[in-house]
Nucleic acid binder design. Structure first.
Lengths: 245, 245
DNA sequence: CGCATAATTGATGGTTATCAAGACCAGTGG
DNA sequence: CCACTGGTCTTGATAACCATCAATTATGCG
């Protein structure tokens, strides 16, 4: 009945062709719907983790705090993402989930995954592979935090976002909306808001990026990619070994 | 016939009770054996990834290089670890694998995992959960690199190693062998070898750790853990939802 | 328009990098 | 037995990058 597009279906369909049965399984995850205002913490580290979440609209981020208030943003979530997988391994959440803007989410119980595991070897393989791909993405993040300068970090950050957005939105140009403030970008990159501002200014003066009212434009994407040795981990994945749908 | 202990069986048995069938599947992964000298690169980023590796003896590490030679060590591998999971998602390796000392490995083809997926829902669930647990471990690493001082990073590094070693070696004391030089430790923590030396000296002068001929002793583990807000991700995992063996 | 939030800019300081020299140690070969 | 070597660790001096603090200017929103 729902004629609305599903971002999760879009995202998964990018990697494999889903049959009717699999489509039904995926859509069944997006039945319920909850909305949250910008800035709200949807869960916090230590909370019991009984549910996962599909992002329907809006951006969010997962972060870990240090006791004195330092914050590290670990992952940014876009429409179509499934949030909460890392916490399946534990009984309590290891990160905080915060809405970066007004969002709509589709929560579903962890145990609904059982149905997928039992009924669809294809979706099981895909979810497993996505978990491993996410490890590589986290490794890229580690590389950026450990060994890149501030300019390289910001370049990496923007390219990574663009690559991810292009999966769900294939026709995307070199421009996208960036609903994060500079404190949040800094917390993702291990920098301060002040230095993010300065670094963005540098990149802009050098003609690599442009900004206007909440949008970023990657003017010289090749130069940005070379500066931080960027590799797109989203466009290509090895699905050759998957079982048939 | 093989009366030799299997570190992989030890590690997996820590989390679930394996039946005879599962034990046979796991042991079958450790048939072949290869040895490498200290410092050898076993594979490099870009190589085709057809095999995974179980570590039988010795330490190794996975690292990514930047084009100008900067290096980020991403993960340290101990006996019982399975190396190469993140690369299943891609056709080519994303990191270099280097032997930190003389090592013995048991390689097995990626496709041998199919047998496990088909025959053992328990092992499938365990491997999936370990992949998600590893995401959390990588997130902890991100937090350390992005938001910790050098002293906190070194404390975190040592505690993380100790927690991992205790899984396979339950009776371990507060002392362990650390076959990594300070350049390697620095590359894991986003520091230089020089600053690792200074930081180790500080911790030693403050009575938190001690070193002697390749061994580290964690004198005040509680203080170290508090300084970096350490949480052991290895001791406890949620296996309650696993299917029976 | 007025308010709160976010971004910018400047001045200063701290943490860590860089460069360089020396100490220590294990192994090697004369 | 000892000089020699290569690797590792330590220590000092200096410099770079980024943090911190503070003030000002945009920006968005009721």
């Amino acid at each position: 009945m729902s004629s609305q597009r599903s971002c999760l279906v879009d995202k998964l369909s990018y990697y494999v062709r889903l049959g009717d049965g699999d489509l039904g399984l995926v859509r069944s995850l997006e039945k319920a719907e909850e909305s949250y205002a910008s800035g709200v913490d949807i869960y916090r580290g230590g909370d019991a983790t009984k549910r996962l979440w599909v992002v329907k609209s809006g951006w969010l981020f997962s972060a870990t705090d240090l006791p004195d208030g330092r914050r590290q943003i670990v992952r940014i979530h876009h429409p179509g993402d499934v949030i909460g997988f890392p916490d399946i391994a534990f009984e309590n959440a290891t990160t905080n989930l915060t809405a970066a803007e007004p969002v709509t989410l589709c929560p579903f119980p962890k145990k609904d995954l059982d149905v997928i595991f039992q009924q669809s070897p294809l979706l099981t393989a895909l979810l497993f592979t996505l978990a491993l791909r996410d490890q590589v993405v986290l490794i890229d993040h580690i590389r950026a935090l450990g060994r890149m300068s501030a300019e390289e970090k910001v370049a990496f950050f923007l390219l990574d976002l663009a690559a991810r957005l292009r999966i769900v939105n294939p026709g995307m140009s070199d421009t996208f909306r960036l609903p994060l403030n500079q404190s949040e970008i800094g917390d993702a990159l291990g920098l301060t808001n002040v230095y993010v501002s300065r670094t963005f200014g540098m990149l802009e003066r050098r003609g690599l990026v442009a900004r206007s009212n909440g949008f970023v434009r990657l003017i010289d994407e090749a130069a940005l990619a070379e500066s931080c040795d960027f590799i797109d981990r989203y466009a290509g994945m090895d699905t050759s070994w998957f079982p048939p749908g």
